[in-house]
Protein backbone atom coordinates (compact mmCIF):
# COMPACT_ATOMS: atom_id res chain seq x y z
CA UNK A 1 0.00 0.00 0.00
CA UNK A 2 1.32 3.43 -0.93
CA UNK A 3 2.80 5.36 1.97
CA UNK A 4 0.93 8.65 1.59
CA UNK A 5 2.68 10.12 4.60
CA UNK A 6 0.97 11.80 7.53
CA UNK A 7 -2.52 13.15 6.95
CA UNK A 8 -5.42 14.64 8.84
CA UNK A 9 -9.15 14.00 8.99
CA UNK A 10 -11.27 16.33 6.86
CA UNK A 11 -13.71 18.05 9.22
CA UNK A 12 -16.58 20.51 8.55
CA UNK A 13 -14.95 23.22 10.66
CA UNK A 14 -12.11 23.35 8.12
CA UNK A 15 -14.36 23.62 5.06
CA UNK A 16 -14.38 27.42 4.85
CA UNK A 17 -10.60 27.61 5.15
CA UNK A 18 -10.09 24.90 2.52
CA UNK A 19 -12.52 26.50 0.09
CA UNK A 20 -10.49 29.68 0.31
CA UNK A 21 -6.94 28.36 0.54
CA UNK A 22 -7.00 24.81 -0.85
CA UNK A 23 -5.11 21.91 0.67
CA UNK A 24 -1.56 23.25 0.59
CA UNK A 25 0.54 21.72 3.37
CA UNK A 26 -1.67 18.63 3.77
CA UNK A 27 -0.17 15.29 2.72
CA UNK A 28 -3.53 13.52 2.53
CA UNK A 29 -7.06 13.74 3.85
CA UNK A 30 -9.29 11.07 5.28
CA UNK A 31 -12.91 11.75 4.38
CA UNK A 32 -15.85 10.28 6.29
CA UNK A 33 -17.63 8.18 3.68
CA UNK A 34 -21.15 8.90 4.93
CA UNK A 35 -20.52 12.68 4.73
CA UNK A 36 -20.42 12.15 0.96
CA UNK A 37 -23.65 10.17 0.75
CA UNK A 38 -25.66 13.34 0.05
CA UNK A 39 -25.87 14.74 -3.47
CA UNK A 40 -24.31 18.12 -2.78
CA UNK A 41 -23.69 20.78 -0.19
CA UNK A 42 -20.47 21.96 1.29
CA UNK A 43 -18.78 18.53 1.63
CA UNK A 44 -18.85 18.02 -2.13
CA UNK A 45 -17.85 21.62 -2.82
CA UNK A 46 -14.77 21.13 -0.63
CA UNK A 47 -13.96 17.79 -2.23
CA UNK A 48 -14.25 19.30 -5.71
CA UNK A 49 -11.82 22.01 -4.58
CA UNK A 50 -9.16 19.73 -3.07
CA UNK A 51 -9.44 16.38 -4.87
CA UNK A 52 -6.84 17.27 -7.48
CA UNK A 53 -4.48 18.78 -4.92
CA UNK A 54 -4.19 16.02 -2.35
CA UNK A 55 -4.81 12.25 -2.07
CA UNK A 56 -8.07 11.26 -0.42
CA UNK A 57 -8.98 8.17 1.58
CA UNK A 58 -12.52 7.12 2.53
CA UNK A 59 -13.27 6.08 6.10
CA UNK A 60 -16.76 4.83 6.94
CA UNK A 61 -18.57 4.73 10.25
CA UNK A 62 -21.74 2.97 9.15
CA UNK A 63 -20.92 -0.10 7.07
CA UNK A 64 -21.57 -2.57 9.87
CA UNK A 65 -19.59 -5.64 8.83
CA UNK A 66 -20.52 -7.00 12.26
CA UNK A 67 -24.26 -6.36 11.90
CA UNK A 68 -26.13 -9.65 12.06
CA UNK A 69 -27.63 -8.83 8.67
CA UNK A 70 -24.35 -7.42 7.31
CA UNK A 71 -24.00 -4.20 5.30
CA UNK A 72 -27.02 -3.37 3.16
CA UNK A 73 -26.86 -3.52 -0.62
CA UNK A 74 -28.03 0.12 -0.74
CA UNK A 75 -25.14 1.21 1.47
CA UNK A 76 -22.60 -0.61 -0.68
CA UNK A 77 -24.14 0.79 -3.87
CA UNK A 78 -23.85 4.38 -2.60
CA UNK A 79 -20.31 3.73 -1.38
CA UNK A 80 -19.39 2.45 -4.84
CA UNK A 81 -20.70 5.70 -6.36
CA UNK A 82 -18.66 7.79 -3.92
CA UNK A 83 -15.56 5.69 -4.64
CA UNK A 84 -16.09 6.20 -8.38
CA UNK A 85 -16.40 9.97 -7.85
CA UNK A 86 -13.41 10.42 -5.54
CA UNK A 87 -10.98 7.62 -6.48
CA UNK A 88 -9.74 7.23 -2.90
CA UNK A 89 -6.35 5.64 -2.30
CA UNK A 90 -8.12 3.09 -0.07
CA UNK A 91 -11.36 2.52 1.83
CA UNK A 92 -11.77 1.66 5.49
CA UNK A 93 -14.43 1.11 8.12
CA UNK A 94 -14.62 -0.49 11.56
CA UNK A 95 -14.71 -4.00 12.96
CA UNK A 96 -18.02 -3.47 14.71
CA UNK A 97 -21.77 -3.58 14.46
CA UNK A 98 -24.07 -0.56 14.54
CA UNK A 99 -27.61 -1.47 13.56
CA UNK A 100 -30.15 -4.18 14.20
CA UNK A 101 -33.63 -4.73 12.79
CA UNK A 102 -33.44 -1.51 10.81
CA UNK A 103 -32.53 0.72 13.75
CA UNK A 104 -29.18 2.50 13.60
CA UNK A 105 -27.35 3.35 16.83
CA UNK A 106 -24.69 5.52 15.12
CA UNK A 107 -22.14 4.02 17.48
CA UNK A 108 -19.31 1.59 16.86
CA UNK A 109 -20.34 -1.42 18.93
CA UNK A 110 -18.21 -4.43 19.83
CA UNK A 111 -18.97 -7.89 18.53
CA UNK A 112 -18.25 -11.05 20.49
CA UNK A 113 -14.92 -12.44 19.41
CA UNK A 114 -15.43 -16.14 18.72
CA UNK A 115 -15.39 -18.53 15.79
CA UNK A 116 -19.07 -18.16 14.79
CA UNK A 117 -18.82 -14.36 14.61
CA UNK A 118 -15.53 -14.65 12.79
CA UNK A 119 -17.13 -16.83 10.12
CA UNK A 120 -19.96 -14.32 9.78
CA UNK A 121 -17.67 -11.29 9.56
CA UNK A 122 -15.36 -13.08 7.08
CA UNK A 123 -18.36 -13.72 4.83
CA UNK A 124 -19.38 -10.05 5.06
CA UNK A 125 -15.86 -8.78 4.36
CA UNK A 126 -15.63 -11.10 1.34
CA UNK A 127 -18.96 -9.67 0.17
CA UNK A 128 -17.84 -6.05 0.68
CA UNK A 129 -14.47 -6.55 -1.01
CA UNK A 130 -16.22 -8.24 -3.93
CA UNK A 131 -18.76 -5.46 -4.18
CA UNK A 132 -16.20 -2.64 -3.95
CA UNK A 133 -13.60 -4.59 -5.94
CA UNK A 134 -10.88 -3.50 -3.58
CA UNK A 135 -9.24 -4.41 -0.31
CA UNK A 136 -10.97 -3.10 2.80
CA UNK A 137 -9.16 -1.88 5.90
CA UNK A 138 -10.95 -2.50 9.21
CA UNK A 139 -10.28 -0.50 12.33
CA UNK A 140 -10.02 -1.85 15.88
CA UNK A 141 -12.61 0.02 17.95
CA UNK A 142 -12.91 1.52 21.38
CA UNK A 143 -14.92 -0.85 23.57
CA UNK A 144 -16.57 0.04 26.83
CA UNK A 145 -17.60 -3.55 27.49
CA UNK A 146 -16.55 -7.08 26.70
CA UNK A 147 -18.99 -9.90 25.94
CA UNK A 148 -19.00 -13.01 28.10
CA UNK A 149 -19.18 -15.02 24.88
CA UNK A 150 -15.81 -13.80 23.56
CA UNK A 151 -13.21 -16.53 23.25
CA UNK A 152 -10.40 -14.53 21.68
CA UNK A 153 -9.00 -11.01 21.81
CA UNK A 154 -9.78 -8.34 19.24
CA UNK A 155 -6.20 -8.59 17.98
CA UNK A 156 -6.46 -12.37 17.50
CA UNK A 157 -9.82 -11.94 15.79
CA UNK A 158 -8.44 -9.26 13.43
CA UNK A 159 -5.38 -11.34 12.63
CA UNK A 160 -7.52 -14.32 11.64
CA UNK A 161 -9.86 -12.05 9.66
CA UNK A 162 -6.86 -10.71 7.72
CA UNK A 163 -5.59 -14.23 7.09
CA UNK A 164 -8.93 -15.54 5.82
CA UNK A 165 -10.13 -12.55 3.75
CA UNK A 166 -7.02 -10.63 2.76
CA UNK A 167 -8.42 -7.43 4.25
CA UNK A 168 -6.09 -5.05 6.07
CA UNK A 169 -6.08 -3.38 9.45
CA UNK A 170 -6.51 0.29 10.24
CA UNK A 171 -4.73 0.34 13.58
CA UNK A 172 -6.20 2.98 15.88
CA UNK A 173 -3.56 3.48 18.52
CA UNK A 174 -5.74 5.77 20.60
CA UNK A 175 -8.41 3.08 20.82
CA UNK A 176 -5.82 0.63 22.17
CA UNK A 177 -4.90 3.12 24.89
CA UNK A 178 -8.55 3.84 25.79
CA UNK A 179 -9.29 0.10 25.98
CA UNK A 180 -6.24 -0.37 28.16
CA UNK A 181 -7.55 2.32 30.50
CA UNK A 182 -11.13 1.06 30.70
CA UNK A 183 -10.82 -2.68 30.29
CA UNK A 184 -7.23 -3.37 31.27
CA UNK A 185 -6.35 -4.69 27.81
CA UNK A 186 -2.71 -4.73 26.77
CA UNK A 187 -1.99 -2.61 23.66
CA UNK A 188 1.27 -4.46 23.07
CA UNK A 189 -0.57 -7.79 22.95
CA UNK A 190 -2.71 -6.45 20.11
CA UNK A 191 0.36 -5.24 18.21
CA UNK A 192 1.97 -8.65 18.63
CA UNK A 193 -1.20 -10.46 17.52
CA UNK A 194 -1.33 -8.59 14.21
CA UNK A 195 0.93 -9.97 11.48
CA UNK A 196 3.55 -7.62 10.00
CA UNK A 197 2.25 -6.24 6.72
CA UNK A 198 -1.37 -6.35 7.85
CA UNK A 199 -1.57 -2.73 8.98
CA UNK A 200 -2.38 -0.37 6.11
CA UNK A 201 -3.04 2.77 8.11
CA UNK A 202 -2.68 4.12 11.64
CA UNK A 203 -5.00 6.49 13.48
CA UNK A 204 -3.81 8.85 16.19
CA UNK A 205 -6.14 10.94 18.36
CA UNK A 206 -6.78 12.29 21.81
CA UNK A 207 -9.25 11.09 24.42
CA UNK A 208 -10.81 12.38 27.61
CA UNK A 209 -9.87 10.99 31.00
CA UNK A 210 -12.29 11.30 33.91
CA UNK A 211 -11.62 11.53 37.67
CA UNK A 212 -12.88 7.96 38.18
CA UNK A 213 -10.00 6.74 36.01
CA UNK A 214 -12.09 5.96 32.93
CA UNK A 215 -11.48 7.31 29.46
CA UNK A 216 -13.78 8.14 26.56
CA UNK A 217 -12.65 8.18 22.94
CA UNK A 218 -13.59 11.79 22.23
CA UNK A 219 -10.91 12.66 19.65
CA UNK A 220 -10.39 15.91 21.51
CA UNK A 221 -7.10 17.66 22.15
CA UNK A 222 -3.57 16.82 21.08
CA UNK A 223 -2.37 13.22 20.95
CA UNK A 224 -1.45 12.22 24.52
CA UNK A 225 1.96 10.85 25.48
CA UNK A 226 0.52 7.38 26.13
CA UNK A 227 -0.70 7.24 22.52
CA UNK A 228 2.62 8.46 21.13
CA UNK A 229 4.35 5.69 23.11
CA UNK A 230 2.18 2.96 21.54
CA UNK A 231 2.63 4.63 18.14
CA UNK A 232 6.38 4.22 18.49
CA UNK A 233 5.91 0.55 19.33
CA UNK A 234 3.60 0.12 16.32
CA UNK A 235 6.15 1.69 13.97
CA UNK A 236 8.85 -0.61 15.31
CA UNK A 237 6.64 -3.62 14.59
CA UNK A 238 4.99 -2.61 11.31
CA UNK A 239 7.48 -0.16 9.79
CA UNK A 240 6.43 3.04 8.06
CA UNK A 241 2.63 3.15 7.78
CA UNK A 242 0.42 6.00 6.48
CA UNK A 243 -0.69 7.78 9.63
CA UNK A 244 -3.61 10.09 10.22
CA UNK A 245 -4.51 12.45 13.05
CA UNK A 246 -8.20 12.61 14.02
CA UNK A 247 -9.55 15.62 15.91
CA UNK A 248 -13.36 15.71 16.21
CA UNK A 249 -14.29 17.81 19.22
CA UNK A 250 -13.28 21.41 19.95
CA UNK A 251 -11.55 21.25 16.57
CA UNK A 252 -8.75 23.84 16.34
CA UNK A 253 -7.51 25.59 13.18
CA UNK A 254 -6.11 23.12 10.69
CA UNK A 255 -2.53 24.27 11.38
CA UNK A 256 -2.79 22.84 14.88
CA UNK A 257 -3.95 19.45 13.58
CA UNK A 258 -1.22 19.50 10.94
CA UNK A 259 1.35 20.09 13.68
CA UNK A 260 0.30 16.76 15.21
CA UNK A 261 0.74 15.07 11.84
CA UNK A 262 4.20 16.66 11.60
CA UNK A 263 5.08 15.22 14.98
CA UNK A 264 4.07 11.76 13.77
CA UNK A 265 6.27 12.30 10.69
CA UNK A 266 9.21 13.27 12.88
CA UNK A 267 8.78 10.21 15.09
CA UNK A 268 8.66 7.94 12.05
CA UNK A 269 11.81 9.57 10.66
CA UNK A 270 13.57 9.24 13.98
CA UNK A 271 12.67 5.57 14.45
CA UNK A 272 12.94 4.29 10.91
CA UNK A 273 15.74 6.33 9.37
CA UNK A 274 18.39 4.08 7.85
CA UNK A 275 21.03 3.69 10.50
CA UNK A 276 24.37 5.27 9.70
CA UNK A 277 27.13 2.65 9.73
CA UNK A 278 29.53 3.34 12.52
CA UNK A 279 33.07 4.23 11.55
CA UNK A 280 35.46 1.36 12.01
CA UNK A 281 37.58 1.64 15.06
CA UNK A 282 41.05 2.96 14.37
Amino acid sequence: MTHLGHGVGLRPSHYAWLLEHGAAGVEWFEVISENCFGAGGRPWAVLERIRDEVPLVLHGVGMGVGDARGPSDAYLARLREVIAALSPAWVSDHLCWGSVDGTWTHELLPIPYHERTLAHVCAQVDRVQGSLRRRLLLENITSYLQWQASEMTEGEFLAELVRRTGCGVLLDVNNLVVNATNLGLDPMATLEALPPGSVGQIHLAGHTRYPDGSAIDTHVGPVPDAVWAVYRAALRRFGAVPTLVEWDDEVPPIDVVLAQAARARAIEAELLAPSTPESPAP
Binding site: E34, G64, Y75, S99, T103, W104
Partner: peptide, 8 residues
Amino acid sequence: PSGGPNLR
Protein backbone atom coordinates in the same frame (compact mmCIF):
# COMPACT_ATOMS: atom_id res chain seq x y z
CA PRO B 1 -35.36 5.58 15.86
CA SER B 2 -32.74 6.26 13.25
CA GLY B 3 -33.52 4.21 10.17
CA GLY B 4 -30.35 4.60 8.13
CA PRO B 5 -26.58 4.87 8.26
CA ASN B 6 -26.48 8.62 7.72
CA LEU B 7 -26.87 10.60 10.93
CA ARG B 8 -27.96 13.49 8.73
